[in-house]
């Protein structure tokens, strides 16, 4: 059986470069996947996944080991995603609240005629950040709500509420489009 993340982390702190490589390889796909689901393009996702690991290894001494190393990576990635989404909103001069409250029908009017998957992807992209985080962590990463709460630094109840709102948002958007 392979070494645990914490054992690898101990080896890394002792200067073992092979442990660093093993830790990155072990989690790179799942962190890239999360970043891609949040940012919706390869370039930003690759950059953000890289920054997630850089932050993790720069500050690994502050990792208390109360959660798993993977959960800690998720937390860092989610925080960086929030900043990236906020920066993107500033760059495009979009009001993030307008984006969150956008009428689903307007969103669908823009993407009418495209494939269902594209539409769904776009609607997910318009979700408020915290709803999107809860949805992605639940649906694509199969986390329990308790763990989603840990990653999002909120209560389990708040994580559940965000997830339910996200699904409801998508259902309404899809229904409006199909009418």
């Amino acid at each position: 059986m392979g070494e645990s993340d914490n054992q690898l982390l101990d080896r890394y702190s002792a200067g073992d470069e092979a442990a660093f490589e093993e830790l990155v390889r072990r989690h790179q796909k799942i962190i890239y996947n999360l970043a891609h689901r949040m940012l919706d393009n390869h370039a930003d996702a690759a950059d953000l996944a890289q920054r997630t690991f850089v932050q993790a290894f720069l500050h690994y001494q502050s990792f208390k080991r109360e959660s798993s190393f993977r959960t800690w990576l998720y937390q860092i990635c989610i925080n960086l995603c929030r900043n990236a989404i906020r920066d993107r909103a500033y760059r495009t001069h979009e009001d993030i609240h307008e984006m969150e409250l956008a009428d689903p029908q307007d969103t669908f009017a823009d993407v009418a005629g495209t494939e269902l998957k594209d539409r769904m992807g776009r609607v997910i992209h318009t979700l408020p950040a915290r709803q999107k985080e809860a949805l992605v962590l639940r649906v694509y990463h199969d986390h329990a709500f308790e763990e989603i709460g840990t990653i999002m630094r909120c209560s389990e109840g708040a994580a559940k509420a965000n997830y339910h709102h996200a699904v409801d948002h998508l259902r309404r958007a899809l229904a409006s489009n199909e009418e």
Binding site: R25, K117, I124
Partner: peptide, 22 residues
């Protein structure tokens, strides 16, 4: 909705990307 959301896949950037990533 849940079935469709679950069906959305992230394109794999390829082996070279993963090899170079560390």
């Amino acid at each position: 909705v849940l079935v469709r959301v679950k069906g959305l896949a992230v394109p794999d950037p390829g082996d070279r990307f993963w090899d170079d990533f560390p």
